[in-house]
């Protein structure tokens, strides 16, 4: 199937990497983190890249999922799956209720409101020490068990997160190429025109906001059980910004762009460790330079360039048929 060609290549890559590098730290440890980041970036891309609603507080939903799982399973001994489900439920309710007032805002106001929401949630995590463990975090979170099989090694986790990540990417690709996905993109293109085509933009925005939040919460629960420990630092304002950066760095409104951005931004700090003290500075510089010189993002920018080169030898049809998202940011 041509529509999902990129997806199959990706899936093959995820499956084959540990075969060739079974005990490689970069595959099974950093790779797992990258997988969680991919899930988050893909979910944020649905909201920000496709529907055009910026969020600087996405880490909050990641945190709500992670902490609900952590608190219920570590403190109260709940089954991790039930804890995860409760996290999803709680996230869904919170997202649903803030979506309407928040998504009435646009541009910088929307950025500020989502940012404020993220900070408020983070402060709640820090301040409610008796429940969350406060700034020191919460440990002893049990691992997941899948039909009696305990996920207890790095490689096992690599498999679980890999499958979850591929599932989320598959869902995202399906959604975008459907009636609902077109409604999202229409909303981004022109809100009045979308309304005139019969799209209820308010419920569509609310829907994608809740969906993105649920996926982030799911990632949070996985993160919680995989790490065995959570602390508020993982869900801060900075992480929200990092997520936005992943989406933008890869290229907005492209699922593969979000995947690319998440993987690059996960591995970059690992590579920059060599530079020690210069790490923060180099990271900032890369961010700035990419946005100045490749504002559509690295992945989408390079892909468009490849299309342009191919265009000289091909008919326009074979080019545009690929995927319906060029740089729209």
């Amino acid at each position: 199937m041509r529509r999902l060609a990129g997806f199959y290549i990706l899936a093959a890559g995820v499956a084959l990497l540990p075969v060739f590098f079974p005990d490689n730290y970069f595959i099974t440890v950093v790779g797992v983190t990258a997988g969680i980041h991919v899930i988050l970036a893909v979910s944020l891309n649905l909201l920000m890249g496709y529907a055009g609603q910026i969020s600087l507080g996405h880490a909050a939903f990641f945190g709500i999922g992670a902490y609900t799982s952590a608190i219920l399973s570590a403190r109260y001994g709940w089954n991790p799956w039930l804890a995860m489900l409760t996290g999803l439920l709680l996230t869904g309710v919170i997202a649903y209720f803030i979506a309407r007032p928040i998504l009435r805002l646009k541009g910088h106001y929307l950025a500020m409101a989502t940012l404020g929401f993220g900070i408020i949630i983070n402060i709640v995590l820090v301040q409610n020490g008796q429940l969350t463990g406060g700034p020191d975090g919460l440990g002893d979170i049990p691992s997941l068990t899948i039909f009696g099989w305990e996920v207890d090694s790095d490689l096992h986790w690599y498999g679980v997160i890999g499958v979850a990540m591929l599932a989320v990417i598959w869902l995202s690709l399906n959604i975008i190429d459907s009636r609902s996905g077109r409604a999202l993109r229409a909303l981004h293109g022109s809100e009045v025109a979308a309304e005139m085509m019969g799209i209820n933009t308010t419920t569509t925005k609310t829907g994608v906001f809740v969906l993105a939040a649920l996926i982030a919460s799911f990632a949070g629960s996985l993160f919680s059980h995989q790490q065995g420990f959570v602390s508020p630092g993982s869900f801060s304002f900075f992480f929200s910004i990092e997520l936005v950066t992943m989406v933008v760095l890869g290229g907005m409104a492209s699922t593969y762009g979000a995947v690319f951005g998440a993987i690059v931004l996960t591995f970059l700090p690992e590579l920059l460790v060599v530079f020690e003290d210069y790490e923060v500075m180099i990271f900032g510089a890369i961010l700035m330079l990419t946005m100045i010189f490749l504002p559509q993002g690295i992945f989408v920018g390079l892909r468009n360039l490849a299309y342009k080169l191919r265009k000289k030898n091909a008919t326009p049809d074979s080019i545009a048929g690929k995927e319906q998202n060029r740089g729209t940011a």
């Binding site: 009636r179 077109r182 409604a183 993109r185 229409a186 981004h188 293109g189 022109s190 009045v192 025109a193 979308a194 005139m196 085509m197 799209i199 409104a253 545009a320 319906q324 998202n325 060029r326 729209t328």
Partner: peptide
């Protein structure tokens, strides 16, 4: 008020 982020066919599909 085009959906400039889409193909022509997708624009009409939104219709």
């Amino acid at each position: 008020q085009m959906f400039f982020n889409m193909t022509v066919l997708d624009n009409v599909l939104v219709g």
